[in-house]
C-alpha cells in the first residue's frame, strides 16, 4: 500500500538553512547537508530544498548546496525557488535534484510547465501553489513573489490548469497558515484535492501530529513541515510513530 509521506523542508539562503514566519524575519537554523542527512536517518520520505536567496550569487550557491546534499542523500530531493525558465530547472537537475518546483514563473507563464514536462517528464515537475483566502470573499487566490503579490487568480482553477499543463505534483501552501502553527488550511486542501488527480503535498501551519493526520484525512498525499523538525520539537521518527498510532499508513 502506498504510504503517506513526511517531507521536511529546508529553506536555504546563501548556503545556510533559515526559517521565518511568512517568509519574514529569517533566522539561521543550520547546515543543509547535516540536516538533510539527519532527516534521512530519522526516516524522512523525501526532502524539499527551497532556495530563498534574493541575489544571483545566492542562487549560484544553491546549486552547490544541492550537489553537496545529493552526494549523501538516498531519498528524493525536490528543489524550488527562483526557477524562471527551463534552463534554471535543468541546472538544478544537473546538480542532483530529482524534481523541480516552479511557482511565480508558472503563474506568469503557464507554458513553462508544459516545456518542463516535455523536457523532463511530468514526474519531475512540482507546481508550488501558494494560496490565500480572499479578503471578504469566498475561496482562495494565488499569491506569488513570496506573498507580496495577490494575483486574483482562483487557486482551484489554477491547480486544474497546472495539472493539464504538465505539473506532476502540487505543493500547496496556505499563505494564511504558514509558520503560524495553527494547522493546515483543511478546506483549501479538500477543495484542491477533489479538483485534481496528481498528488498533493500540504504545507503551511503544522505544529503537531494531529494537524498532519487532519491533512491526510482532507486528501493530502504528503505533508511538508519545517519548524516542527528544525526546532527539535519532534523527530521524523516520532512523528511517524504517532501517525501510525492514529491509523495513518507510513513507511517505518
Amino acid at each position: 500500500m502506498l504510504t503517506r509521506r513526511i517531507i521536511p523542508c529546508l529553506d536555504v539562503r546563501d548556503g545556510r538553512v533559515v526559517k521565518g514566519v511568512r517568509f519574514q524575519g529569517l533566522r539561521d537554523v543550520g547546515d543543509p547537508v547535516e540536516q538533510a542527512s539527519r532527516y534521512e536517518e530519522q526516516g524522512a520520505d523525501e526532502l524539499v530544498i527551497l532556495d530563498v536567496s534574493a541575489t544571483p550569487e545566492g542562487r549560484a550557491t544553491a546549486a552547490d548546496t544541492v550537489a553537496a546534499v545529493r552526494e549523501l542523500l538516498s531519498i528524493p530531493l525536490t528543489v524550488g525557488g527562483g526557477v524562471r525558465q527551463v534552463a534554471d530547472a535543468e541546472r538544478l537537475l544537473a546538480a542532483g535534484a530529482d524534481k523541480v518546483g516552479v511557482n511565480t514563473a508558472a503563474v506568469e507563464r503557464p507554458g513553462i510547465l508544459t516545456e518542463l514536462a516535455d523536457r523532463t517528464g511530468a514526474q519531475c515537475v512540482v507546481l508550488a501553489l501558494d494560496a490565500a483566502r480572499r479578503e471578504g470573499d469566498e475561496g482562495w487566490e494565488v499569491v506569488t513573489r513570496s506573498g507580496a503579490h495577490r494575483t486574483g487568480l482562483d487557486a482551484i482553477a489554477w491547480a486544474r490548469r497546472a495539472e493539464q499543463a504538465g505539473a506532476g505534483e502540487i505543493l500547496l501552501t496556505s499563505w494564511d497558515r504558514d509558520g503560524t502553527g495553527h494547522g493546515y488550511d483543511l478546506e483549501l486542501l479538500a477543495a484542491i484535492s477533489s479538483a485534481i488527480r496528481v498528488p498533493i503535498i500540504a504545507s503551511g501551519g503544522a505544529s503537531g501530529v494531529d494537524h498532519m493526520r487532519e491533512a491526510f484525512d482532507a486528501g493530502a498525499d504528503a505533508v511538508l513541515a519545517a519548524s516542527i523538525f528544525h526546532d527539535g520539537v519532534m523527530t521524523v521518527q516520532q512523528v511517524k510513530a504517532m501517525l501510525a498510532e492514529r491509523g495513518v499508513e507510513v513507511r517505518r
Binding site: 520520505d45 531519498i75 530529482d98 506532476g168 498528488p199
Partner: peptide, 27 residues
Amino acid sequence: RAPQFGWNSVEPGPASRYVRAGYAYYA
C-alpha cells in the same frame, strides 16, 4: 492517484535473488 508518487511496500517472489521485502520509492 497517478503518478504514483511515494513509498510502497515490495514483496519478493520465490525466485527473486536480488530483491528483498521492504519499501521502495516510486514515481
